[in-house]
Measured scan of single mutants.
Amino acid sequence: ELVLALYDYQEKSPREVTMKKGDILTLLNSTNKDWWKVEVNDRQGFVPASYVKKLD
């Protein structure tokens, strides 16, 4: 499943990933309501769920 980055996000820990507004990311896990695991540029990590939106 793919998600769209709604905002820029700068990683604050090694478990997170940086994304730019408009990026298309692969959603790996959305079981946590606050932090979703995504893959971007061959890196996996977490981003705030409120910063991304699922693409239909």
Results as ranks from 00 to 15, higher is better:
residue 1 E to C: 13
residue 1 E to Q: 15
residue 1 E to I: 15
residue 1 E to V: 14
residue 2 L to N: 06
residue 2 L to K: 15
residue 2 L to D: 03
residue 2 L to H: 10
residue 3 V to E: 02
residue 3 V to Q: 02
residue 3 V to N: 01
residue 3 V to W: 09
residue 3 V to A: 12
residue 4 L to F: 09
residue 4 L to A: 07
residue 4 L to N: 03
residue 4 L to M: 15
residue 6 L to E: 04
residue 6 L to Q: 05
residue 6 L to I: 11
residue 6 L to V: 08
residue 6 L to G: 02
residue 6 L to A: 04
residue 7 Y to K: 14
residue 7 Y to L: 10
residue 7 Y to W: 11
residue 7 Y to A: 11
residue 7 Y to S: 09
residue 7 Y to F: 14
residue 8 D to S: 09
residue 8 D to I: 02
residue 8 D to T: 05
residue 8 D to V: 02
residue 9 Y to K: 00
residue 10 Q to E: 14
residue 10 Q to T: 14
residue 10 Q to S: 12
residue 10 Q to H: 13
residue 10 Q to R: 13
residue 11 E to F: 06
residue 12 K to I: 07
residue 12 K to H: 09
residue 12 K to C: 10
residue 12 K to E: 08
residue 13 S to K: 08
residue 13 S to F: 07
residue 13 S to G: 13
residue 14 P to D: 14
residue 14 P to T: 10
residue 14 P to Q: 11
residue 14 P to S: 12
residue 15 R to F: 13
residue 15 R to S: 14
residue 15 R to D: 12
residue 16 E to W: 03
residue 16 E to A: 06
residue 16 E to T: 07
residue 16 E to N: 05
residue 17 V to F: 14
residue 17 V to N: 04
residue 17 V to M: 11
residue 18 T to C: 06
residue 18 T to N: 07
residue 19 M to L: 09
residue 19 M to E: 01
residue 20 K to R: 13
residue 20 K to L: 09
residue 20 K to T: 10
residue 20 K to A: 09
residue 21 K to F: 05
residue 21 K to W: 03
residue 21 K to H: 06
residue 21 K to I: 06
residue 21 K to S: 08
residue 21 K to N: 05
residue 22 G to C: 08
residue 23 D to W: 12
residue 23 D to F: 05
residue 23 D to R: 02
residue 23 D to Q: 15
residue 23 D to S: 08
residue 24 I to S: 03
residue 24 I to P: 02
residue 24 I to E: 03
residue 25 L to W: 03
residue 25 L to N: 00
residue 25 L to P: 01
residue 26 T to L: 15
residue 27 L to Q: 00
residue 28 L to V: 12
residue 28 L to S: 02
residue 28 L to R: 05
residue 28 L to T: 05
residue 28 L to C: 06
residue 28 L to G: 00
residue 28 L to W: 06
residue 29 N to V: 09
residue 29 N to T: 08
residue 29 N to L: 09
residue 30 S to C: 11
residue 31 T to G: 12
residue 31 T to P: 04
residue 31 T to L: 10
residue 31 T to R: 09
residue 32 N to L: 09
residue 32 N to Q: 11
residue 33 K to N: 12
residue 33 K to L: 10
residue 34 D to K: 13
residue 35 W to P: 01
residue 35 W to Q: 03
residue 35 W to H: 03
residue 36 W to K: 01
residue 36 W to C: 04
residue 36 W to N: 01
residue 36 W to G: 01
residue 36 W to D: 00
residue 37 K to N: 07
residue 37 K to M: 15
residue 37 K to I: 14
residue 39 E to P: 00
residue 39 E to V: 12
residue 39 E to I: 12
residue 40 V to C: 10
residue 40 V to F: 15
residue 40 V to Q: 15
residue 40 V to W: 08
residue 41 N to M: 13
residue 41 N to A: 14
residue 41 N to H: 13
residue 42 D to P: 06
residue 42 D to Q: 10
residue 42 D to Y: 10
residue 42 D to L: 11
residue 43 R to S: 07
residue 43 R to I: 08
residue 43 R to Y: 05
residue 43 R to C: 06
residue 43 R to K: 12
residue 43 R to T: 08
residue 44 Q to W: 08
residue 44 Q to C: 09
residue 44 Q to A: 11
residue 44 Q to F: 07
residue 45 G to R: 01
residue 45 G to K: 02
residue 45 G to V: 04
residue 45 G to M: 06
residue 46 F to E: 04
residue 46 F to K: 02
residue 46 F to D: 04
residue 47 V to P: 00
residue 48 P to S: 02
residue 48 P to T: 01
residue 48 P to W: 02
residue 49 A to C: 07
residue 49 A to F: 03
residue 49 A to Y: 03
residue 50 S to F: 09
residue 50 S to N: 13
residue 50 S to M: 12
residue 51 Y to P: 02
residue 51 Y to N: 05
residue 51 Y to C: 10
residue 52 V to H: 00
residue 52 V to S: 00
residue 53 K to V: 15
residue 53 K to T: 14
residue 53 K to M: 15
residue 54 K to P: 10
residue 54 K to C: 08
residue 55 L to G: 04
residue 56 D to N: 13
residue 56 D to G: 14
residue 56 D to V: 12
residue 56 D to E: 14
